[in-house]
Simulated assay, not measured.
Amino acid sequence: MLNTIGLGVLGIDPLTAVYMMSMRLRGERKSRVTLFFLSFAVSTILVGTVLVASMGGAAAGFLQSVLPDDGSRFWAIAELAVSVVILLWVAKRVFAGPKREKKQPREAVRRGVLGHVTMGFVFAVTSFTDPTFYAVMLIGGESRSVVTAALLLTLWFVVSQCLTMVVYAAIQCNRLDALAARLDEWKARNHAMFNHMLHGVLVVVAILLTADATAFLSTGGYLL
């Protein structure tokens, strides 16, 4: 359980929380948000549990086998591409002039039940690319218990999606507007410091990715 909690912390995902917040702010009903959340949660936990139940500890290896191996040239190319995107994004933010933000009126969204279920599954697919998900599946497979595997995957989901859980609770308690207002207030108060830190971290990440990719293309081995 401690290992699973640690893996959950390493796999924290803010993207789903942001998407769920945008759903509600665009006018989606709470029942639709719940449908998306349940589809996302059930798909993530159920697929992992089924794979562990059918393949045991080999389930993680099976999922990893569909991805390029650690020594593949693919990762060097991907690192270079990501570093270029990061540097271009930072340069655009640093050198572009200040933009005036226009508040857009909220529009009620009309999306069918199938659309929300599908989006939940699409977000669940992103979990299948997370190495911490593989690690939890491996732990569950070694336990030789489907119930234990399901509980560990559920625990990992709760920890890694803690931000999503907070947003979901705020929506259900009708406190999303207050949460959004607090986030905007914090952003306005710490905007400059946050931007400097964000840009610095991203530049360092881009440099490390470039160095790692360059080392592989030059010597055939990764630094990281």
Rank of each mutant, 00 (worst) to 15 (best):
L7P: 00
L10F: 15
D13P: 00
L15W: 11
L15D: 02
V18W: 10
M20K: 12
R24N: 12
L25E: 03
V33F: 01
F36K: 02
F36E: 01
F40T: 02
V42F: 05
V42P: 01
I45Y: 02
V50T: 08
L51E: 01
L51K: 00
S54V: 08
G56M: 00
A58V: 06
F62P: 01
F62R: 07
L63D: 08
Q64K: 15
Q64L: 13
G71Q: 04
R73S: 13
W75Y: 11
I77P: 02
V82W: 01
S83I: 08
V84A: 12
V85D: 13
L87M: 06
L87I: 03
A91G: 10
R93L: 12
A96R: 14
G97I: 08
R100C: 02
R100Y: 10
R100A: 12
K102T: 14
P105V: 15
P105T: 15
A108D: 09
L114G: 09
G115E: 10
T118E: 12
G120W: 00
A124E: 02
T126I: 09
S127Q: 09
S127M: 12
T129Y: 11
P131D: 05
I139M: 10
E142D: 11
V146H: 03
A149N: 05
T154S: 13
T154Q: 03
F157R: 01
C162S: 15
C162N: 09
T164S: 12
A169D: 10
Q172V: 12
N174I: 14
N174D: 15
R175Q: 13
A178P: 01
A181P: 05
R182P: 03
R182E: 11
E185A: 15
R189W: 15
N190F: 10
F194L: 06
H196P: 00
M197P: 02
L198M: 10
G200D: 03
V201S: 13
A206P: 08
L209T: 04
A213K: 00
F216Q: 05
T219L: 05
G220E: 09
L224E: 04
